[in-house]
Design a binder for these strands. Structure first.
Length: 209
DNA sequence: CGCTTTTGACCTGCGC
DNA sequence: GCGCAGGTCAAAAGCG
């Protein structure tokens, strides 16, 4: 069983941006860390909206042991990433649509394009345990992909985080999960089943797996 | 019974 | 304006 730990928005960078990272384990065995993030400063184009084009900020090679935890611990590495990312503009979030919907039936809320974070993992299952509860609200077939894309919303009251899950056509072993929005609540995992606990274990026993 | 999933219809933005 | 693709809605079905 793949355990998939999600720590979206655990490190806010600006009003609209926060650093996110996933760590993948299999039977408590470290697999790899993978960080994806859209590039706010990239020029808007239709192609840049595709999940495949989100920029990788940091990733490790699959490995049976955690990387560099002796000399450069993970927090240090992530702090460096924080500094790098802080230089980015985040103007995309502010481009809320001010449409004149006076004459339209207001069936939907105004669309606000928020920052998206896409994560890839190699997994046989599409539904990965990221610590939050999700309700599926849609599924669409995707052009040039024989696998459908599923749309989920966080079930926590008042939390408007969404995610999409899609399997790559060109490599069906890879699942792409794209998150949009900021969780307004903590993960529902118990204290010894969250990231900080696991990270502390990794640093104390970096080669113990 | 309450929550989740399914699924076709509908909406929206974009390129031509 | 038209068609296409992506995204969302919502009623019905499924499920524990």
């Amino acid at each position: 069983m793949i355990r998939f730990f999600s720590f979206i928005n655990s490190r806010p960078l600006t009003t609209h941006t926060s650093l996110s990272y996933h760590i993948f384990f299999h039977h408590h065995r470290f697999i790899y860390i993978h960080i994806y993030m859209s590039t706010p400063s990239s020029p808007p184009s239709s192609s840049s909206k595709k999940m495949e084009n989100y920029q990788t900020i940091f990733t490790t090679q699959p490995s049976p042991t955690p990387p560099l935890l002796h000399d450069h611990n993970l927090h240090g590495h992530l702090n460096k990433i924080n500094m790098d990312v802080l230089g980015c503009s985040t103007s995309l979030d502010d481009s809320a649509i001010h449409g004149d919907d006076k004459n339209k039936k207001k069936k939907r809320e105004k669309k606000v394009r928020r920052e998206r974070y896409a994560f890839q993992t190699r997994s046989q299952v599409d539904i990965l345990d990221d610590g939050y509860r999700w309700r599926k609200y849609g599924q669409k077939s995707v052009k040039n992909n024989r696998f459908p894309r599923s749309y989920y919303r966080c079930t926590h009251q008042g939390c408007n985080v969404k995610k999409q899950v899609q399997r790559l056509s060109r490599d069906e072993g890879v699942v792409v999960t794209t998150y949009e929005g900021v969780h307004t609540h903590p993960t529902q995992k118990s204290n010894n089943d969250n990231f900080e606990h696991i990270l502390s274990q990794m640093q104390i026993y970096p080669a113990g797996f």
